[in-house]
Design a protein around this nucleic acid. Structure first.
Length: 519
RNA sequence: GCCCCCAUCGUCUAGCGGCCUAGGACAUCACCCUUUCAAGGUGGAGAUCACGGGUUCGAAUCCCGUUGGGGGUACCA
């Protein structure tokens, strides 16, 4: 490559271009990707699906040191969970395989050799120690750190000497020394960088594997990726990529940099700051529909009023031009809201199906035995609108399943009733309920109401008028039966709980308040 | 340090020169509904559109600068 400026690859290649859109998600199996990573995947998937193109999964496992066993499976599991299906990938293959970069080693070597042969790359024998010292010196002298290009100007003799020493070289790109490099950023326009700020990046590491930077370029080209969608942190690397594309004489893909997802402290979302892997959200009881919807609206927008999208609707309306350019903070309370909304949208069957595993996992050992699907289904329906996550299910509903809820007697005595009063109420109310022919909400409510009126529970309204006061009696029964002050609606709850259980619990409650009254 | 990106309510955002005394949503507050908690309904507070200059008859919208935030600066991706 010459040392002159290269022109920006300003080609109009919007999504609606003629050739089919091919995007790729290219994770590195060094761990379990967090939500920000999957948002990029969502956008990539959407861009492909919107235009009827293909979505490719390519695993960038070129860093053997940081490889985490099982992470490839985890990455795919996350994708599947969200519903992001891929057309080509390591598990299913495809016409451009293999899709595991570690299996493509010879390919990168071949292209690196070509660059060396053209004079656009060279072998470098500098040790990591020297590189480190060089950098330290540069920083001390307040110079911009970067490779000093010592090996770029080695004579053939010097090169042969190093080879004779048995040093395994890396391959570096011979970047243009002067002028500027510009590339076209799909969302930001032409971005220009001074070539003197760009050093000679490593293409092939001494272990023979390519760096991310190089493998990415080669594979995106070879796999015919038309739209490269990646995080904003790669903007500063983009001109380097452009230089390599141009050295090969390859057409550059459309490059879309999506804005970063930030932690609440405004730093880049990263695991070391507590960003959770996507699958943790699944395990915490979040719905994939909610996650997808939330993620879609983080850095992308449709209009000023539509807030809910199914995956199909997303595909239909997705417009890559509406991806934002400014970073967004991950707002958990908004995610929680979406999750609640989606839980409330679930059909009873679907709710049961999804919440059951959480119920079984979260309920105390002794309670689990009573979890039969039909009963659990009715219980869950009662608490559906109270669930923020599916994992809330066991704590919210545990009293339905235990033999007898345990609680403090003080809880039973509300501010409106003392122990003798409570004793008397339970003593007379239990037979009333026991006498009910039909154990259903209407009948229970009617009986309770009649009791309230008959026993003179009255409340004064603001305007001075007096109305029956359900409060004290309802709360006594509520706590007596559940051991809590916050529960679903009483008649419905008693119905689901069943007559037997209701009565036996109320009798136990009666004993409790009697004991207090007797003191 | 150097290079680069970004900048509308606490948060996610609408806005792409006049429809904006800036709209919606989350969160928050109040009230209503009500047997509790939720859910739901209504309403409130909350952004001099970071600041300063231009351009224009007219700027949140275009340009420049400042400030602030973020990213990059690895034989990591």
């Amino acid at each position: 490559m010459s040392d002159t400026s290269s022109s920006p690859a300003t080609q109009a290649t919007p999504t609606e271009a003629a050739r089919p859109v091919r995007t790729r998600y290219a994770p590195s199996p060094t761990g379990f990707p967090h939500i920000g990573n999957y948002r990029t995947a969502l956008f990539e998937w959407l861009a492909a699906r919107h235009s009827g193109g293909q979505f490719v999964l390519r695993v960038e496992d070129t860093d053997r040191k940081r490889l985490v066993p099982g992470s490839i499976e985890g990455i795919m599991e996350g994708l599947r969970w969200m519903g992001l299906t891929w057309d080509e990938g390591p598990d299913i293959g495809g016409p451009y395989g293999p899709y595991l970069q570690s299996e493509r080693k010879p390919i990168y070597r071949e292209y690196a050799d070509q660059l060396v042969a053209q004079g656009d790359a060279y072998t470098c024998y500098c040790s990591e120690e020297r590189l480190e010292q060089m950098r330290a010196g540069q920083i001390a002298r307040k110079e911009p750190p970067g490779y000093d290009r010592r090996c770029r100007y080695l004579t053939p003799e010097e090169r042969a000497a190093r080879e004779a020493e048995g040093i395994t070289p890396v391959v570096r790109f011979a970047a243009p020394l002067a002028g500027q490099t510009a590339y076209h950023d799909y969302l930001r326009g032409d971005l220009t960088f001074e070539n003197r700020t760009i050093d000679d990046m490593i293409l092939l590491k001494s272990d023979g594997l390519p760096t991310y930077n190089f493998a990415n370029i080669i594979d995106d080209h070879l796999m015919d990726i038309t739209h490269v969608i990646r995080g904003e942190e790669y903007i500063s690397s983009a001109p380097r990529y452009a230089q390599v594309y141009r050295a090969f004489g390859w057409e550059e893909p459309t490059v879309i940099h999506v804005p970063l997802v930030l932690a609440p402290d405004r730093s880049k979302l990263a695991k070391r700051h507590g960003a959770l892997p996507l699958l943790d959200y699944r395990d915490m009881g979040y719905l994939p529909e909610a996650i997808c919807n939330f993620l879609l609206l983080l850095g992308w927008s449709y209009d000023d009023k539509t807030e809910f999208f199914t995956l199909d609707e997303m595909i239909r309306v997705f417009d890559d031009r509406r991806i934002s350019v400014s970073p967004a903070i991950f707002d958990k309370s908004r995610l929680d809201w979406f999750n609640g909304v989606y839980i409330r949208k679930l059909s009873p069957e679907e709710l049961t199906k999804r919440a059951m595993p959480f119920l079984l996992a979260g309920l105390p050992e002794s309670a689990r035995v009573s979890v039969n699907p039909a009963y659990a289904s009715r219980v869950l329906a009662l608490d559906q609108e109270r669930l923020k996550t599916l994992a809330d299910a066991p704590t919210l509903t545990s009293f339905f399943f235990v033999e007898q809820p345990e609680y403090d007697s003080a809880l039973l005595l509300g501010k409106n009733m003392d122990a003798p009063q409570a004793t008397e109420t339970l003593r007379t109310l239990i037979p009333t309920l026991a006498g009910l022919a039909a154990w259903e909400p209407e009948a229970i409510l009617a009986a309770l109401d009649a009791y309230v009126v008959d026993h003179g529970f009255i409340r004064k309204k603001a305007d001075g008028s007096e109305v029956p006061d359900r409060g004290p009696v309802f709360m006594l029964v509520r706590v007596g039966v559940s051991g809590r002050k916050e529960t679903p609606g009483l008649p419905e709850m008693l119905t689901v709980l069943g007559k037997e259980r209701t009565l036996s619990r109320l009798r136990a409650a009666q004993q409790t308040v009697e004991a207090v009254a007797g003191e």
